[in-house]
Simulated scan of single mutants.
Amino acid sequence: MQLLNEFPPRSIANDAKLTATQARIHLIIDRGKLTQDDRDYLKVLGMLVYDYEEHHEPMPKLKGAELLKALMEESNLQPNDLVSILGNESAILEILDYKSQLTEEQIQELASFFHLSPAASFA
């Protein structure tokens, strides 16, 4: 109840409220050992942030090698981490250097690996 009284979860209407909500999230996470109430409260705040960002901060439309690079960076992956999906490392580097295109099978495998829709992501 203390969390709710100090910072009641409300729809985020502007960047100032977004920043305040994000600061509250970080404050709770930084405390360390979280209770189930903390986790539930963070989940609600996270949904509010997600909803605001979905409507006000659209993600850039990345495709092909650009998307693959971004996903690899986000997941801290190196080209050799994708050998089982894309073949040998030189084939991966050719894709990342725009010298080669992803095949339909590779797109399906990558979409499955990164939990994305193949049609909306790599094609």
Rank of each mutant, 00 (worst) to 15 (best):
I28A: 00
E94W: 04
A20Q: 14
H56N: 15
S84G: 10
E74A: 14
L67Q: 01
E6W: 05
L27D: 14
A123R: 10
M72A: 02
N80R: 13
L27Q: 12
F122C: 01
R39Q: 09
H115P: 01
Q2K: 12
A119F: 11
A70H: 00
Q106S: 02
R24S: 07
Q106W: 00
E53Y: 01
Q36R: 10
A123C: 11
L102H: 05
E89N: 11
L45S: 03
V49R: 01
G64A: 11
T35V: 07
Y41N: 03
I28Y: 01
G32A: 04
G87E: 04
E109H: 08
N76G: 06
P9Q: 09
N14D: 14
F122M: 02
A65R: 03
I29H: 05
L116Y: 05
M59H: 10
L18R: 04
Y98K: 09
E57A: 02
I29A: 12
H115E: 15
K69F: 05
S112D: 14
L116P: 00
L110P: 00
L77S: 02
L77R: 01
E54W: 06
F114E: 06
A20D: 15
I107T: 09
L45V: 03
S11D: 09
R24I: 09
M59T: 08
K63G: 09
E73N: 08
L4G: 12
L86V: 09
N88P: 06
M59Q: 15
D51W: 05
R31T: 07
P60I: 10
L82I: 07
L4F: 15
T103L: 04
E109F: 06
K69C: 09
H26C: 06
L27F: 11
E89Y: 04
S121I: 00
Y52H: 06
S100E: 13
E105W: 03
L86R: 01
E66H: 05
